[in-house]
Structures are given as C-alpha cells and as structure tokens.
Computed example of a mutant assay.
Amino acid sequence: MPTHALEPAMLNALIALDDLPRQNASQVKNKWGEVVRLVRQSGSVAVTNHSAVEMVLVDASTYRQLTEDVQALKDRERAVLQELEQRFDARLAVLQQPDAARKVTALFDTRGKLGRRPKAGASF
C-alpha cells in the first residue's frame, strides 16, 4: 500500500473544539430537544460544566464516519508496518548469507576508496 494515501475525509472536516457550539450541562438536561436540534444542525455540540468543555455530543452519522476513519487509519498503519517488516526481513536475509561477513570486511578494507571513477555529468 502506498504511504502517500489520502487522509480520511472526516478528519479534515472536524471543527476545532473551541469553535463548537456550546451548551452547559443544565441546558442539556433541561432542554434536550433543543440540544438535539443543535447537534443535527451543526454536527456536534460541546457540553460544558463550569465553562470547561467536558464532552462533545455528535450525531450518529458523524460517529460512524469517525469510527470508519479510525479503522482506515489503523489499516493503513498495519499495511505500512507490514511493508517495513518485509523490507527489514529482506535486508536481514542478505546479511545472513554465508559470504556477508567477507563482503562487509572487504568494504571496510577499502577505507572509502573507489575501485573506479564515478560516472557523472556529461560523461555519464
């Protein structure tokens, strides 16, 4: 799976917590119908207690989308980790070949000297 996959759509559409419409806990308790209308209208409402946001109410479709987006991110993370594991295993297999120690020793013995001139520029 490509590591440059698009981010789930809902994550980009969420409103910052400080920008959400607010209702205090008493309003939620006493005027539930109004709160439900506000949630349906805006998608989510911050519930406050003593002016501090304690929770956010979201409509069911927003919650479903959030859970789908989280699962998509987990799936993408799992695919990226599997790809990294495969690459690691392939490199480890090269290092475990019988002549790997000899090749590493030969590399260190060159002390940074090249066997032939590098090809670059117009001559390449």
Rank of each mutant, 00 (worst) to 15 (best):
A25C: 07
A25F: 08
S26I: 08
Q27K: 06
V28S: 00
K31S: 04
K31Y: 05
W32S: 12
G33Q: 13
G33M: 13
E34F: 11
V35N: 01
V35D: 02
V36N: 07
V36A: 09
R37W: 10
L38Q: 08
L38F: 09
V39H: 02
V39S: 00
Q41R: 12
S42A: 03
S42V: 00
A46P: 00
A46V: 00
V47C: 01
T48G: 00
H50C: 07
S51P: 02
V53T: 14
V53P: 01
V53N: 03
V53L: 05
E54A: 04
E54F: 01
E54Y: 04
M55H: 02
M55P: 01
M55S: 09
M55T: 07
M55Y: 02
L57C: 02
D59N: 07
D59L: 01
A60P: 06
A60S: 10
T62P: 02
T62A: 04
Y63K: 14
Y63Q: 15
Y63W: 14
Y63R: 14
R64D: 07
L66H: 02
D69H: 08
D69T: 05
V70Q: 14
Q71V: 04
Q71L: 10
Q71E: 03
Q71W: 03
Q71D: 06
A72V: 01
A72N: 09
A72Y: 04
L73W: 10
L73M: 11
L73T: 11
D75V: 07
D75R: 15
R76D: 02
R76W: 04
R76L: 03
R76V: 03
E77R: 14
R78T: 03
R78Q: 02
R78E: 00
A79R: 12
A79I: 08
A79H: 09
V80A: 15
V80F: 14
V80W: 14
L81R: 15
L81F: 05
Q82W: 12
Q82E: 10
E83P: 08
L84A: 10
L84G: 08
E85M: 11
E85Y: 08
Q86H: 14
F88G: 13
F88S: 12
F88V: 15
D89V: 14
A90R: 14
L92P: 08
L92M: 12
A93M: 07
V94A: 15
L95F: 09
Q96S: 12
Q96M: 10
Q97I: 11
Q97R: 14
P98Q: 10
D99C: 04
D99W: 11
A100E: 05
A100G: 03
A101S: 09
R102Q: 13
K103S: 07
K103Q: 10
K103P: 08
K103F: 10
V104A: 08
V104F: 06
